[in-house]
Each structure stands twice: as structure tokens, then as C-alpha cells.
Amino acid sequence: MLTRLTGDRAHAEEVAADVFHKLSRRPELLAAQEDLNAWVYRVATNAGLDALRMNARRRRREDAAGLHTNTASPPEALDAILREERRGRVRDVLESLKPRDAQLLLLRADGLAYRELARSLGVEPGSVGTMLARAEAEFERRFRARYGEDV
């Protein structure tokens, strides 16, 4: 999940290591497995979104400096550019959402059930459907506002 969010496996591993370092300072979480999983998911998605914001700022600086080049052959290069552009748009929209909405979408995309989502985000299981519907609507609205109707 962190790799999807950051787009960089090494960076995702660094973020995961930070999360487990934080976990080492929360011994009370070690007593209950379900609380532990929920805490790890919540903190990991938060850390991943933070990393995403930092990546976006760095990317903008590097784009401004013209540091990005593509060395693939022309057809592959075009596909790669388009694919990376779409991924960048998705990350940009996720980054712009409220953290809880982005967390909800990411964790749901990662396959968590409503009960696990509720535990991870500290909400009632009965409110997950409402929150999910609103987060999806907000994601789509922002995506269309930024990039047109091409959702």
C-alpha cells in the first residue's frame, strides 16, 4: 500500500521502518492484535500521505529544474509518460483530500473490510458506508475539477 502511494519501493520501506519505530514506543498496542493492526494501518497511511506531499513538492522543484528525462524508446516512452501522468494525477488528488478520506480510499482499495476500516480510522462500522460514498464523490469532484471530465 505504501509502495502504491509513494511510487517508490525504497521510500515505502523507509516509511514503514519509521512506522515500526513509532510502534516500538507504544508498548500498550502490543497487547491487542486487532488494535495493533488498526494502529499500523492508520499511522502507515498517514505517513504515506505525508511522504506523498513531500514527494509532490520535490517533484515540482525537479520539474522546474528540468531534471526528469525519459530514456525509453519512443512508443514505450509515450506509454510510460501517459501512465505516469495518470498516476501522478491520482496521487495529487489523494494528497488534496482530507487525510481521513484519502486513508479510507487507500485502505478500501487495499481490500480492508468495513469492520477493519472502522477500527483503523476510529469510527463506527455503521458510518463507513456514508464516509466511503462521500470520499468517492469528493475524489471524483476534485479529479474532474483539475483534469476535466476524463475520470
Binding site: 500500500m1 502504491r4 511510487g7 495518470r86 491520482v90 489523494l94 482499495a109 479529479f143 475520470v151
Partner: peptide, 17 residues
């Protein structure tokens, strides 16, 4: 929405706890 989010590359299979 999830078709877009699924475009983000996962490192192999999704890592679940």
C-alpha cells in the same frame, strides 16, 4: 474511483498485515 486508484502500481501482491 477505484479503477483510478488501482492504477497506482503495487509492489507485487498487496501487502496485508
Amino acid at each position: 474511483v477505484f479503477a483510478l486508484i488501482d492504477e497506482l502500481p503495487a509492489a507485487g501482491n498487496a501487502a496485508r498485515l
